[in-house]
Amino acid sequence: MGEQLPQIDPQTCSGCGLCATACPSGVLTLIDGRIQVQESGCIGCGHCGSVCPTGAATAPAGDGWAEHYDVIESRGAVLAPGEFPAGPLVDLLRSRRSCRCFTEKPVSGAMLEDLLRAAVTAPSGTNSQAWTFTALTSRAAVLGLGQAVAGFFARLNKLAANTLLRRAYTFIGRPELENYYREHFASVAAALVDWERDRTDRLFHGATAVVIVGSRPGGSCPAEDALLATGNMLLTAHCLGLGTCLIGYAVEAMRHDRRVKEAAGVPSGEAVHAVVALGWPDVTFLRPTSRRRPLVRYKTA
């Protein structure tokens, strides 16, 4: 399929040039009061169609999947900058918490689908939208991934327990194994004991669904794109009454062991950037948490 380009209706185009001004890739130019369309370079951002006051500019269209929700009531409104009050938004941001206590109630497929629709409203580098989402929709599927992750860390702990091996890697400038041993070995070992004894789930905390956020090759900044989409998903999940938790251990396992990716159903050619545990929370947070003051710099010239 070739590159799609914006279409300009000369009968309704007023020649205002707003679409050319908004075009980030220079595909549209205003020449002698008429909009000219270049033959290549469109990234499909849709700015031209969004700013055209007469509707003369038509952006390359998708299939509409991301515009129609099943469980979320969306008016389809376009909120201009400053139109949505910042106070409720900040309340939402501060209210979202990582949940590590879930009930056994499953998350519906329609709700998961709407979360993914909300996720892809995030920005992406050069509008590549190269993100991927792999949804584990049952507790059994989540436990299957948990078993694969446990196997990876059991093998890693066996290596890390070897003092000579840790020292050898550190000697050649590879201190990762020593750092892992110092910071994670003991807690992982304890979690593995609990898992093998009675399947106590200290990884996904009883979540009934998991979404793995990855990327296909070709994006200009795929990790950033995936994490921005993940942030959208976390906030939308909170609005729907769901709890979420980012599972970094699962990300690391999939990055280092193709067997874990295979267990999750993620193709080998995709990178994994985030793993989100999802479910109905079995805990109620009554007040927001505090945050440490970050290092902030201001430069005026």
Rank of each mutant, 00 (worst) to 15 (best):
E3S: 04
Q7I: 12
T12A: 11
G15K: 03
G15S: 05
G15V: 10
T21M: 15
G26P: 06
I31C: 09
E39I: 09
G44M: 01
G46E: 08
G46T: 08
V51Q: 12
A56L: 01
T58D: 08
P60D: 13
E67D: 15
V71C: 11
I72V: 15
G76E: 11
L79A: 14
A80C: 11
F84C: 10
E104I: 07
A118E: 05
N127L: 06
T137G: 04
T137P: 00
V142L: 07
G144H: 06
G146C: 02
Q147G: 09
G151I: 00
A154I: 05
K158F: 10
L159M: 15
N162D: 15
R166F: 01
R167H: 13
Y169H: 13
R174E: 14
N179L: 14
H184E: 12
V188A: 00
V193I: 08
A207P: 10
G219R: 03
P222E: 08
L228S: 08
L240I: 06
G243D: 03
L246N: 07
I247Y: 02
Y249D: 13
V251G: 03
E252V: 15
E252G: 10
R255W: 07
P267N: 11
P267L: 09
G269H: 14
V272G: 04
A274L: 04
A274V: 01
A277I: 06
P281F: 00
F285H: 10
L286Q: 10
L286S: 10
T289C: 11
T289N: 12
T289H: 12
R291L: 10
R293C: 12
R293Q: 14
L295H: 15
L295A: 13
R297S: 15
